[in-house]
């Protein structure tokens, strides 16, 4: 009997989630730095890194938006079984998951409010690959400048201009992730 929704996930949630969170935290504290998670966590079309982020951060207290290409019956079942996170539209989402072209335009997502800039969406962006070259990043967490392959520059520049409001990003490809938040200036 095939039960794909039971595949993957954490065998030892407390320890594995701690390891993955350290990777995500390091990536977000040091924008542009590429971290590697353990393989074998996800099911198609999810990368292991994106699966790790969903398993570590999403639960019944959050809301997740799946872009149409990721909104498959199999993935819905898998996410429901492992996390219990309710699915929602882009306007209410705490987390959104999909490829860059499916996530844009970004103004559909919540950037937080002036009083509560933390009430903003985090976008989990599935990519083909992550490279330490491309757009130039600077800002908190970066000593001078660093480079990261980003899908475009304009959207990130506009996002950073809204600071302290804005969206935070976790780019995932295979077992790798990088996480430039809104505070990162992109040129």
């Amino acid at each position: 009997m095939q039960t794909p929704s039971l595949q993957g996930g954490f065998a030892e949630p407390a320890r594995e989630a701690a390891m993955v969170f350290r990777d995500i935290m390091t990536a977000m504290a040091r924008p542009g730095q590429i971290e590697t998670v353990a393989p074998g966590l996800g099911i198609a079309p999810l990368s292991d890194a994106a699966a790790a982020v969903v398993l570590t951060l999403c639960d019944a207290d959050t809301k997740l938006y799946l872009t149409p290409r990721h909104d498959t019956e199999a993935l819905r079942r898998w996410i429901a079984f492992h996390t219990g996170v309710p699915l929602t539209g882009p306007q209410e989402a705490d987390f959104a998951l999909g490829a860059w072209d499916d996530l844009t335009p970004l103004n559909r997502f919540r950037p937080g409010t002036a009083d509560y800039p933390d009430q903003s969406a985090t976008l989990i962006v599935e990519c083909e690959a992550l490279d330490p070259q491309g757009a130039m990043l600077s800002g908190p967490g970066i000593q001078s400048t660093t480079e990261l392959s980003l899908p475009e520059v304009k959207a990130f520049r506009r996002n950073a201009q809204q600071f302290p409001l804005g969206l935070d990003f976790i780019f995932t490809a295979g077992v790798q992730l990088a996480a430039p938040p809104r505070s990162t200036k992109v040129t």
Partner: peptide
């Protein structure tokens, strides 16, 4: 822990 971890990430972003 997930709730605290989400807060830490938002804190690092702002």
């Amino acid at each position: 822990k997930r709730m605290i971890r989400r807060a830490i990430l938002k804190g690092l972003a702002t």
